[in-house]
Design a protein around this nucleic acid. Structure first.
Lengths: 239, 239
DNA sequence: TTTCAACTCCCCCAAAATAGTGAGGGGCGG
DNA sequence: CCGCCCCTCACTATTTTGGGGGAGTTGAAA
């Protein structure tokens, strides 16, 4: 069976799987198929839930979360602001925190080369699909060039499957805001005070307050700032 | 030249293009290549800016925007909440508004079948890549099954290119926030009050205020909510 | 038809955030 | 060494929000 066919069959198996474990199985198979040191899929959503699967050593994963490297890792920060898949070499590793992180990662066998595909879903969901390896630059360039397309599609399939299992799907939480509520949230997000928003929308401030409060309620937010943050990260408003 | 090769060459040309017009040219070529009635790429994001290119008739496009169909179109509302590409048949066309919209769309030659790929970028950017055609269900099922993968990749390439031209790259991309400022913004974004944030960070509320104000200053924000919104949309904090 | 969600308006008062001033110590690069 | 940024703390006064009440209209869906 050729590589294409095997890749195809792994993805088909993944697509028809009923359990989250299938992701872990599929990623191991794909890692072997591509002959890379590691392959990892990882997502975070607006409420801080996360899920990951992959072939990194348990020690490294534990270390990563316990050190809160999510906020340091240049792969995360870099990909969060980009759309296209990115080679780790092109990220900013200049800060001291990044350098120590990098050193530690390599010590844990992560590999000196990496390629990460950022993927975004509804409600501010953000995921990364990463392949890492230990080799020289030329070999890696050849690898990424050859497999770029496939990796994007695989990332897509993984995220698709992962979203099926996402617990945060209650209709209560993802209920859309009404048009006026969207207006209110949007204007608040661009810095208007309640008075200014009310003026802009040509309604009384009292009325505006009703919208803000109902939006807050729908979003399960504790205050206006929280409501705006949630509305943004869930993609309900565009700022 | 086979279909694969032509597709490849169109995408390569697109990738190396320096002007936005290239998107329009590429989409026309791809439409012809796939033998579909229409192909459209369209994105919305910051400040309500939008850009679209495609092969719909100018009358239909004008009608669409003037009627504000963006808020009615089941393709938009449906895809906005999904991740995977979707066949138009699987969307909810039951509301009255949707039915009249559908009728009008078909009258404008949009086609009775459609397949749309939602794509999301940083900062809440949302784009749709759509192929539409006039044919029976079986023919369309075969078409989408055959080209699904390619359409996802094409959507990805289009969005990648479109983002290059996005004007939303403010020159005064002020210096990054300090660690404490990031802490403050992050906790505020998850709904903590100033008192709670100060408590969490084990500093006085007075000190916290200094961070919030300096963050506000750096971000050019008018108030805390605005600052958090900007920090989020610039990817400075991860919530 | 009835119900329900959205939109609009009003009061009062307590709590929280903002604005205007400060000040001092630590670290890092030119 | 000096400037610059980061971290830490304090006071007072004013403005803005939040929480608790209600109440009426419209339009669309069940």
């Amino acid at each position: 069976m050729g590589m294409k066919q095997r890749q195809e069959s792994i993805l088909e198996e993944l697509a028809s799987a009923q359990e989250l474990d299938a992701l872990q199985a599929a990623i191991e198979n794909l890692r072997d198929l591509f002959g890379a040191d590691h392959m990892v899929y990882h997502w975070v959503n607006a409420d801080g839930d996360q899920y990951g699967c992959g072939t990194y050593s348990p020690e490294w994963v534990e270390n990563y979360v316990s050190q809160d490297y999510l906020r340091v890792d240049p792969v995360i920060v870099g990909c969060y602001q980009r759309f296209h898949p990115v080679d780790w070499k092109r990220l900013d590793w200049s800060s001291k925190a990044a350098r120590t992180f990098q050193k530690e990662a390599i010590e844990h066998g992560v590999g000196n080369q990496g390629f990460s595909v950022p993927i975004r879903g509804p409600n501010g969901q953000f995921a990364l699909f990463t392949v890492s390896h230990n080799c020289d630059d030329d070999t890696w360039a050849e690898f990424t060039e050859k497999h770029r397309r496939d990796l994007i599609l695989i990332a897509h399939e993984f995220n698709n499957k992962a979203l099926e299992f996402e617990p945060n799907r209650s209709p209560e939480q993802s209920r859309a805001l009404s048009p006026r509520e969207v207006d209110a949230m949007t204007l608040l997000a661009v810095g208007y005070s309640r008075a200014q928003v009310a003026d802009t929308l040509s309604i009384s401030e009292h009325t505006l307050r009703v919208y803000i409060e109902s939006a807050r309620f729908k979003l399960g937010a504790l205050n206006t700032t929280h409501a705006v943050a949630r509305a943004m990260s869930r993609g309900l408003i565009v700022v």
